Deep mutational scan, measured.
Amino acid sequence: MAEQVALSRTQVCGILREELFQGDAFHQSDTHIFIIMGASGDLAKKKIYPTIWWLFRDGLLPENTFIVGYARSRLTVADIRKQSEPFFKATPEEKLKLEDFFARNSYVAGQYDDAASYQRLNSHMNALHLGSQANRLFYLALPPTVYEAVTKNIHESCMSQIGWNRIIVEKPFGRDLQSSDRLSNHISSLFREDQIYRIDHYLGKEMVQNLMVLRFANRIFGPIWNRDNIACVILTFKEPFGTEGRGGYFDEFGIIRDVMQNHLLQMLCLVAMEKPASTNSDDVRDEKVKVLKCISEVQANNVVLGQYVGNPDGEGEATKGYLDDPTVPRGSTTATFAAVVLYVENERWDGVPFILRCGKALNERKAEVRLQFHDVAGDIFHQQCKRNELVIRVQPNEAVYTKMMTKKPGMFFNPEESELDLTYGNRYKNVKLPDAYERLILDVFCGSQMHFVRSDELREAWRIFTPLLHQIELEKPKPIPYIYGSRGPTEADELMKRVGFQYEGTYKWVNP
């Protein structure tokens, strides 16, 4: 592979701008107003304001973009700056750019259920340069409990009458099928589907988006991507930290609602779906819905739930269990780990287990898709061969690698495990991989909904998990304890083995 010439960040961002501006969906010269509902909250200060700053800094926003914060707290732009700027990672050389960014910011205080507050917000936006005809993007960085009041008031008082209007809704989209349907029906009564952007930030990850290209742009994968060759698929999300004093919020939802029903299920769809007619948003989402419709409700015998306990040999936070978090209700049975087996009941995947695993306070930070292939028929190497695996590593250190057998150097035919490896950090030294939120917010500006969740996708996802969630809430089974920093409950490994996964433990990928 030829040595790549190092590029400056300015040059890299210039390439990104060229890609972005050559499309006809990006209205570079139009006025846009980006409204952050819930501007005083954690999500706004840690993710949304920093993301908008990065896009502005790199010249990736339309030229005439204004940012308006809205929340109940009586704040000023200076207050917003004070709480969000520490997350910007701005350099001293960017000081003038930073001043320009905050000059485009404003803030309006108001209630979430008060019509007069929204009329005041609308008047404020109209007073901005060309504000009355601007395109408006409303980001709901809010708890779902206020979605209905907020969307109703936005629709009645704050819509642009000339430009387009788009609304970005953060997960969780309800707690179960019934609450999700209620919320979807409410929002759909106010906005068209092409105006609604239900954001799952995992769909903005580079390697998640790469799944489609790997599958449908490489001839070698087509013939082997089926039940005849693939023994099982494992989708993993692991965090090495616990709730760390923020367990009160987590306890309301648990690990299945927080990660599995959305992030992991979306990745499953991209692995299992048929080739779409095109890369058009609805063509892709149509195929994802077909996959979900082929999955039956989760069966309790295919589920393992766990909850982390303190590690007596650990240090600091590792010595504390979930129930030691003062914000967690006493005696909570909320799971911090889950392993679930699903089956896609169609011709391509009949009988292939899709194993979804996620948890907190585990032994490493990792998100990946792992396809394990069947054993080689007619073994001539005296059971020395391990199964081939194709691994798409989402985070950290984005990579695609194939675990395969090669001859060990020497005189004899002794096979050993090795890999074919594409590590993004080595291959793409001159490429700026956008943060997931950067990519998705740019998608909203461009009107691309491919990486957002459609209402029928959402409904099918909740259909699969709601009976299990209701059973857990009714019966309150005690989750299996696992030690902070471990791989999780051993019962999860036993479940995976029972459905056909072979864990060798003899080879570990190392970032080159």
Rank of each mutant, 00 (worst) to 15 (best):
A2W: 08
D30I: 11
I35W: 01
N218D: 04
G242P: 04
T91F: 08
G254K: 04
S184C: 10
F26P: 13
Q111L: 12
F56E: 00
Q11S: 13
M207R: 08
R192H: 12
L75D: 06
I162Q: 09
K89I: 08
N229G: 06
Q195W: 07
T151D: 01
R227Q: 09
I168M: 10
A217T: 11
M37K: 02
I255A: 07
L128P: 10
I234Q: 15
F173Q: 05
E239V: 01
L137T: 10
V108E: 07
N185S: 14
G247L: 06
Y249S: 04
L190F: 09
R246P: 02
E3I: 06
L98E: 05
L177T: 12
C158T: 15
R215D: 02
E170K: 01
R57V: 06
E239T: 04
N122K: 12
H186D: 08
H129A: 12
N165R: 08
Y147G: 02
N153E: 13
Y197T: 01
R219L: 07
R227T: 10
I162F: 15
C158K: 01
G38W: 00
L7S: 13
H129M: 15
D251W: 01
L61N: 02
S157Y: 13
A127D: 14
H155I: 03
K152P: 00
G14K: 15
L130H: 12
S40L: 04
C232H: 07
S73H: 05
S84N: 09
L142D: 02
T65M: 11
A44W: 04
D30S: 13
E206N: 08
A6W: 13
H186N: 11
L121S: 00
A115D: 14
W225L: 01
I230E: 03
R136K: 10
R17K: 13
I33G: 03
S188C: 09
N135W: 04
Q195R: 05
L7Y: 13
I15P: 06
P62V: 00
A231L: 05
H201Y: 01
E148G: 11
I196E: 03
V208Q: 00
N64M: 08
N185W: 10
S40P: 08
V146Q: 15
A71N: 03
H186E: 13
K171P: 03
S29H: 13
F102N: 04
R175A: 09
V108K: 06
I234D: 06
S40H: 00
G248S: 06
A217P: 02
S8W: 04
I255L: 07
Q209K: 06
F102S: 01
S157W: 11
L140N: 05
V233S: 02
D42W: 01
L7H: 15
N210K: 04
W54N: 10
G248A: 05
R198C: 02
S179C: 05
D181V: 06
K97W: 03
Q22C: 09
A217I: 01
G245M: 11
A109S: 13
L96R: 12
S84E: 09
R72A: 02
E93S: 11
R175D: 08
R246L: 02
R182I: 13
I67H: 05
V146L: 11
R192E: 10
K45Y: 06
L20M: 15
S180K: 00
Q133V: 13
M159A: 13
T65L: 10
V208E: 04
I187R: 02
L142V: 12
L121Y: 01
I33M: 11
I162L: 14
L190C: 13
W164T: 09
L60E: 07
I35F: 05
D176R: 04
W164V: 09
A103K: 15
G174C: 01
G38N: 03
I154G: 01
G59D: 08
L55P: 02
N135I: 05
F87L: 12
F191R: 00
A90F: 09
Y197G: 04
Q119K: 13
Q133I: 14
R215A: 02
L16N: 12
N226A: 07
F221V: 09
H129D: 13
G174F: 01
F237H: 09
F102E: 04
I36V: 11
N165A: 11
G59C: 06
A109N: 13
S189R: 14
M159S: 15
F102T: 02
M207G: 06
A103T: 12
S117N: 15
A116W: 11
S160A: 13
S117Y: 12
Y147W: 04
Q22P: 08
L121V: 08
S188R: 09
Q83R: 13
D24A: 09
A25C: 15
L20H: 07
K97F: 07
R17E: 10
A141V: 00
E63N: 11
R198M: 06
Q22L: 15
G245F: 09
D200T: 05
Q83A: 14
A109I: 11
L75E: 07
T243F: 00
E206G: 07
A39H: 01
D58V: 09
A39F: 05
T236S: 13
L43T: 02
K46T: 02
P92T: 14
R9N: 15
Y118E: 00
S180V: 04
F173L: 08
E148Y: 08
E206R: 05
N135T: 07
S117C: 12
D30V: 09
L183N: 01
T10Q: 15
N135V: 06
T31P: 14
Q111V: 15
Q195D: 09
R74F: 15
E252G: 15
V150L: 09
I67V: 13
V169Y: 08
H124Q: 13
F26I: 09
N226P: 02
A103I: 11
F101L: 02
V150R: 03
L142T: 06
E239W: 04
R246T: 00
S157Q: 15
A78N: 15
P223T: 11
L128M: 15
Q11I: 13
A6S: 15
Q195F: 04
V68D: 00
M37C: 14
N122M: 13
I162N: 14
R175H: 14
F221I: 08
N105D: 00
I80V: 11
C232T: 12
K171V: 04
L75C: 10
E206K: 02
S132I: 10
R175M: 12
F241G: 06
F138K: 03
I220Y: 07
